[in-house]
């Protein structure tokens, strides 16, 4: 199993926090996300703290590169245990939608990110590849 870096973990916590800032995620999905994080080494305490503290206005990254970085981190997180579940893909799709990508492209975008995460391409290379398209 791939080790989850502190940077990746904090990114995930931000994503997790973001999930609570709108109506897009229902209770069951949040619960799923919780388990998903816990299984990957994000501590229960950290997650519970986020759940029980009042929501702050979590902003969605504005820059295109930042959006891709966030989503790519999530894709890496999904591959951490070498198993990709339907729930995890749905979560990634939700974030893609939340980050302002077009609904009709969501499936393709999620697949693209997961594919690149599987190939273990670095974030810098990924951004380069996208910009060269």
């Amino acid at each position: 199993m791939k080790e989850i870096t502190i940077e990746l973990k904090s990114h995930f916590l931000r994503l997790y926090q973001m999930a609570f800032s709108d109506d897009n995620f229902d209770t069951l999905e949040l619960q799923m996300l919780y388990k998903f994080a816990e299984e990957r080494g994000v501590s229960k305490e950290e997650l519970e703290k986020i759940l029980l503290q009042p929501s702050h206005n979590t902003s969605i990254p504005e820059k295109f590169e930042e959006k891709i970085e966030y989503l790519y981190d999530l894709a890496i997180m999904i591959w951490a245990d070498n198993i990709v579940t339907e729930d995890e893909i749905n979560t990634l799709k939700k974030y893609c939608l939340k980050f302002g990508f077009l609904k009709e492209n969501i499936v393709e975008l999620a697949n693209f990110l997961l594919e690149k995460a599987k190939e273990k391409i670095s974030k810098v290379d990924l951004i380069k590849q996208i910009n060269q398209l």
Partner: peptide, 11 residues
């Protein structure tokens, strides 16, 4: 949202 979060913790 706060209610949803607490419902999540509860479940």
């Amino acid at each position: 949202i706060e209610l949803k979060k607490r419902n999540t913790v509860t479940s």
